[in-house]
Amino acid sequence: MTLQSTDVSCDGSQIAAARKQRFSQLLGKHRILLGLLLSYLAAASIIGIVLSEPMDTLRPEIVLWMIGALAPVFLISMVVWRFGNMVLNVRPDRPITWLVADLRDCMIQDHERIFGGLIAFASIIVFAATFTFVKDCIPLLNPFSWDPAFAELDRVMHGGSDPYVLLDPLFGNPLMTKLADGAYSLWFALIYFFAFTACMDKEDPQRRNTFLYAFFLCWMVGGSLLATIFSSVGPVYYDAFGFGDDFIPQTEALREIGQRIHLTALELQATLLDGYQNDGDLKGISAMPSMHLALAWLIAFQAFQYRKIFGWMMVVFAVIIQLSSVHLGWHYAIDGYVGLIVAIACWYAAKWLAKVQQRMDHTAQG
């Protein structure tokens, strides 16, 4: 009886050890991603200590709210992704049956995929909450001052004219302005889709890791470091922050169009300005570099990893975002050009990091 109990105890300890080893191996596959997250958290914590600012955006209730808000988007992204894979690659005789089985495998039965996906999803949530805090701290670290320089640089680069003036013959009407506004809103859906599908991309770890690392690096380098160094507000806020009346004709023209059609950009611009002036929940203002452009190019690079046609479609989308960001007053043209440079640099840095992670994975497997 004692011997049998000992055997059972040994079996249990062996199973526990095996599970612990498996957990460690799975966690190790995400050590660089988690390293980037922890590095950013550490930097944000230092900023909070230096400024004596509490990291309110990381309060448990806010993080839980973000999880609740984004979980449905995550699930929708999974369905769209697997449906697209079915239509383009598998083409089964019984599509609905195949899709249900595939989703069950991806979301329930494939433990390695699920574990890795949850790590990446949780990392994105925490990273986004941390980024919000850092962005709110930009004017405290370095007051907005670069706008006149960027406005003048834009004119020098574009023949002496403000770029929005050059775009006015094409975009200065309700139809094109609405299309620009819609493209800007679509950007959010595409970013979440590419980020969340990368979380669950088990088929190509190199592709998954490259995008996720580049995603984090773009926000860290472009949205935090460069945004703080070159602290600026963008044309739409030029007058409100005391830089002059250079862009009042642009903002007035947009408001006139906004009286005829609904523009999400005008609502969000007003919300951000009110939040900044009255310490509201949504108050992060930053123009240089354009993260809309940086991330639009990033998803274009990732789309090429699937099919060239998707990549070129996203290139067109990135160009539209560049033009829209100028027309809607969010950015100077130079913000977008720098955003492209940031995207390219972060993409190649992420590719190198993905290879490092791959070598570590091979070493761990023996």
Rank of each mutant, 00 (worst) to 15 (best):
M220K: 00
M220R: 01
G222D: 07
G222V: 02
S224P: 06
S224G: 04
L226V: 04
A227M: 11
A227I: 08
T228M: 02
T228R: 07
I229W: 07
F230W: 09
S231A: 15
G234R: 10
P235C: 14
V236A: 14
V236R: 11
Y237T: 08
Y237H: 12
Y238R: 06
Y238E: 02
Y238H: 11
D239T: 12
F241Q: 02
F241W: 03
F241A: 01
F241Y: 10
G242E: 02
F243W: 02
G244R: 10
G244E: 15
F247V: 06
I248D: 04
T251W: 00
T251F: 01
A253W: 15
L254N: 02
R255N: 12
E256L: 00
Q259K: 15
Q259G: 08
R260M: 10
T264G: 14
L266G: 03
Q269N: 14
Q269F: 15
A270P: 11
T271S: 12
L273Q: 01
D274Y: 09
Y276K: 10
Y276T: 06
Y276N: 09
N278M: 11
N278K: 14
D279S: 09
L282D: 13
G284T: 11
S286M: 05
A287N: 13
P289L: 02
M291R: 08
M291F: 12
M291V: 10
H292A: 04
A296M: 08
I299N: 02
F301K: 06
Q302P: 01
Q302H: 08
F304L: 04
Q305W: 00
Y306N: 01
R307V: 09
K308E: 13
K308Y: 14
F310W: 09
F310I: 09
F310N: 07
G311S: 04
M313P: 09
M314C: 07
V315Q: 06
V315T: 05
I320D: 01
I321P: 05
Q322N: 10
L323W: 03
L323Y: 09
L323K: 06
L323P: 07
S325P: 11
G329T: 02
